[in-house]
Design a protein around this nucleic acid. Structure first.
Lengths: 228, 228
DNA sequence: CATAAATAACTGACTGGTTAGTTATTAAAC
DNA sequence: GTTTAATAACTAACCAGTCAGTTATTTATG
């Protein structure tokens, strides 16, 4: 009986709505609840934003009652914060490790990072997080501060270091590393924001074309002797 | 009495809070109310977003009671929409007219547009509108649709035309005009979004440096024979 | 092993505070 | 005195967070 329940769980993230599963209402699965709740919260927050997100909807998506949310998270804000920590930080970690072990031109590494963003992040609910943060920053300054310290600054430092390395290796022309890092990152962030807000209405927006143009302009603009 | 009030009004946008004025509570100024309310709404919406904006705060800022808002605007959403129409569309009109009468290199014209953005838009409450739209797009799809049709598509068409002209005149290299227009516009929009959300916490962000790097990369990247 | 008591996960109806929108009333204007 | 701008008290709805009650699971007992 117990093992059956635990196996059933493995398909949960595909469905996206645990309430569909046939298991009874009073299933006790202390281990799995936090993850299920966080994933449900990511979905609701990323599409509605913080203020408009309804905890009843999060609970329904996670297949629990609203009361259960409060067994695992202190408040709506704590849940919001946990979503960011849970889903964003591991991604950065992974990118840093990839760069660490990478041998080859910086240009190609940066191209890899952008490609990974395009194929593995933009498609997922993760892409909703930047919009969520920006939208709620002024109403929840504590969260914005947390995000800048743990995400923005860390990513900026990471990319700046790559640009600096590119200059040292004589791959890139002279430029300000931090601002160039921002120039490189902006369209990545923007593509995520746009996809999660306006792309439904902005029919002409094709993420791939947009990012291809971007990488062409920025990396060709940086690379020395890029004339064919 | 009336003329006194009207003169008093001219300083309103500096103060930003009409409730400070000593005129009596029952002043009847049918002509001026809509503008005052719209400006107050712009301020509140642009800093709080739609959902978190409180009509009581808008009313207080405009120096009226909440009931008065409903004499001039049908609903919160109608007010929101009016803010966009009132403040954004004239700016685009102006930019289009400037371009129309412009004689000289496209590169310089685009530089002008970016400079005007930097010095005349980014400083003002207007810069809060993009964030406001993006943040609320999924909760108010009708508004997002309205914005794409009236603002996004119009600006994209405008800039695309300039890029196309640049290619024809042999100033720019071959490229896709629409995606290049997006590449040019993205950091402008992003600077506005960032300024109205994260810049308080992201201390390293300097709008001028950021946009200078941007224009350098994009326009140098586009311009033919840009080797010194 | 069977059964009962204890514990802890979980539920859902409820509360208190908040706010968009309404309306009865007041005062200004002519 | 009539009309209308403006007010302020009001209502209806909504929702984060609570808690008393329900059920699954574990532990203790014979």
């Amino acid at each position: 009986m117990i093992s059956e329940n635990k196996q059933q769980k493995s398909t949960q993230k595909q469905g996206g709505d645990n309430s569909a599963c046939k298991c009874g209402k009073w299933q006790r699965r202390k281990e799995d609840r936090p993850g299920e709740i966080l994933f449900a919260a990511l979905q609701v927050f990323s599409s509605k934003g913080f203020a408009a997100a309804r905890l009843d909807e999060v609970a329904k998506k996670a297949g629990v009652s609203k009361g259960t949310l409060y067994l695992y998270f202190e408040s709506k804000q704590a849940l919001f914060k946990a979503v960011v920590t849970e889903f964003v930080l591991p991604q950065i970690q992974q990118a840093e490790e990839h760069a660490e072990s990478y041998q080859g031109p910086i240009r190609d590494l940066m191209n890899n990072l952008l490609l990974h963003w395009q194929t593995h992040i933009l498609q997922t609910e993760l892409a909703g997080i930047p919009k969520m943060i920006i939208a709620e920053a002024s109403n929840f300054p504590e969260l914005a501060e947390f995000y800048v310290e743990n995400v923005v600054n860390r990513v900026l430092a990471f990319i700046s270091k790559l640009v600096k390395l590119g200059i040292e290796r004589n791959e890139f022309r002279q430029c300000d590393p931090v601002n160039t890092a921002r120039a490189f990152l902006t369209p990545m962030v923007f593509s995520a924001i746009w996809q999660h807000s306006m792309s439904v209405f902005d029919k002409g927006f094709d993420t791939k074309d947009y990012l291809d143009t971007h990488i062409e302009i920025v990396l060709d603009g940086l690379t020395k002797d890029n004339q064919a």
